[in-house]
Design a binder for these strands. Structure first.
Lengths: 133, 133
DNA sequence: GCAGAAAAGAGGAATCATTATCAATTGCTG
DNA sequence: CAGCAATTGATAATGATTCCTCTTTTCTGC
């Protein structure tokens, strides 16, 4: 895998952010400093970087794929309303993980990951009037 | 909401199956007995039926949306490889649920649902050679 | 530093799932 | 049964992502 300015900018941008951005969010951010970069390049590199294990492609619900520059093992909470994705605490996950592994031994110990979907703080039940899609 | 043959066929088909089908899987199945039904009708009705609470629109990862004729509260395991979705046991979920509610009280008691993503029996690690997307 | 090969880029077309549009048909209410 | 709203089928539009093709850049050994 060659070194290119675009690839480095993408990786740097993704690592500098904790919002689990989509490809087009990254694209928008990158255009500021690199106006000629193309969206295809962003997609292509995110794919390659995730194949190489340098970034994580999140396999969660929502119509746009999201990416994470933090490749340490952790899990995510996705807001059902706005689609934002946040990390969830490792200590909680450890507990859930233990429980799941006990209960579903047939799945193999490291063969599943957990996804939660719920409301984030901005979309709590108070704002239920905004629920119309 | 008027009664139409198409709507009833869709509901009946979805209820008669435990596979959490996608709109086009339903469409294919429905064409057998109703060859003129259109895919748009299937989508439109699934949406209305889910708004009316008669079916469940599953909010899970994967590029195609899936639907469930079983609206009783339960959760799902999606195979990361083949995309098939299976119900997971209520007793396991009760445990996980309790744990999550304790650990994340700020989310509100009934404001989140759980999604697991892992390997189903057909896609277990033995078949790891098929892992290429 | 330079040639040649391999990798990667830009920009646009193609694809796939889903949603929207619209004229024609159907179901419901009186 | 008439009138009107809801629904349908067919097709076009949309949005995210992938593919293509052509040009540019990077790398490697000289």
């Amino acid at each position: 895998m060659n070194r290119t300015a675009q690839r480095e900018a993408i990786l740097e941008e993704l690592r500098g952010v904790t919002t689990h951005p989509t490809a087009d969010e990254l694209y928008a951010a990158l255009r500021v400093r690199m106006p000629k970069i193309s969206l295809g390049t962003v997609y292509r590199n995110l794919e390659q970087l995730s194949q190489a294990g340098l970034v994580r492609k999140l396999d969660i619900a929502g119509k746009q794929r999201r990416f994470d520059g933090d490749i340490s093992p952790h899990h995510h909470l996705r807001c059902r309303i706005c689609g934002r994705v946040r990390d969830i605490s490792q200590e909680l996950l450890n507990k859930v993980d233990r429980l799941l592994r006990e209960a579903m031994p047939d799945l193999g110990c490291d063969s599943f990951s957990l996804e939660l979907s719920g409301f984030c703080s901005e979309c709590k039940p108070e704002n239920i009037n905004k629920k119309r899609r």
